[in-house]
């Protein structure tokens, strides 16, 4: 078992009111799964994604990642998990605008103390894998949307994470470019990676093998295709 969520609840205080963004989510994810989390806005999918990505901790419930209990971790331990075990791909790419493609990809390696010479090699390999070997020294504003998202994917891959978490990865791309990105995810899945997509587009979710639909902070349906 790679991920085991048990009765995860997340409650926010908005003014005097308590809002339950997640109201008891239990979920198992195996290694090398390719799944999509879907749901309308307000369904809690972003919150679930943040908890799965160790950016946030649940109010109650337990989250086990491999054998580690994430729900009890402090800030630094969470940072460590994010660094080594999780690769993020965001809708808005979230690259550092002033850094070159290769430097952006190197960033996660900097934060686990990989020496500079090794970093360059690993980062350029990762960029090659996403087909950007010839764009390494370009800055984000010199790249197209699709290319930027590939840089982001290379960055997500660079520490050989256990899971890749992609939040609407095609949301800012045209259909054709979106398909190209989805092809990369498919390849990564075939190579043995575990991929979790968050999306509200049915045709994107159809690429995956399992779709989890959320509504009002609960799992409405969990279906394998």
């Amino acid at each position: 078992m790679l991920i085991k969520l048990e009765d995860i609840k997340k409650i926010y205080q908005v003014g005097a009111e308590m809002v339950g963004a997640l109201q008891g989510i239990s979920l198992n994810i195996e290694e090398n799964e390719y799944l999509a989390i879907m749901g309308p806005s307000g369904s809690g999918k972003s919150t679930l994604m943040n908890i799965l990505g160790c950016l946030d901790t649940p109010t109650s419930g337990s989250y086990k990642f491999t054998s580690e209990l994430v729900s009890e971790m402090d800030d630094d331990q969470l940072a460590e998990i994010r660094n080594r075990q999780i690769g993020f791909v965001f809708q808005t790419f979230n690259l550092l605008p002033r850094a070159t493609a290769i430097h952006n990809v190197e960033l996660p390696l900097i934060y686990n103390g990989t020496p500079s010479s090794k970093r360059k090699k690993i980062a350029s390999d990762a960029l090659e894998r996403v087909g950007l070997a010839d764009r390494m020294n370009h800055r984000p504003n010199e790249l197209s949307g699709g290319q930027r998202q590939r840089v982001a994917i290379a960055r997500a891959l660079v520490n050989n994470p256990k899971i890749i978490l992609a939040d609407e990865p095609t949301g800012n791309l045209d259909t054709r470019t979106g398909e190209e990105i989805m092809e990369i995810f498919e390849q990564l899945h075939e190579q043995g990676n575990t991929i979790i997509l968050v999306t509200h587009e049915e045709y994107i979710a159809e690429h995956t093998n399992r779709i989890i639909r959320l509504r009002d902070g609960k799992i409405e349906r969990d279906e394998s295709i």
Binding site: G53, L55, D75, D76, A79, E80, R82, N83, R84, F88, N94, L95, L96, L107, P108, Y111, N112, R155, N159
Partner: peptide, 11 residues
Amino acid sequence: IRKAIGARNKD
């Protein structure tokens, strides 16, 4: 972004 990819508070 830096925190998401693993920067600790002290970094």
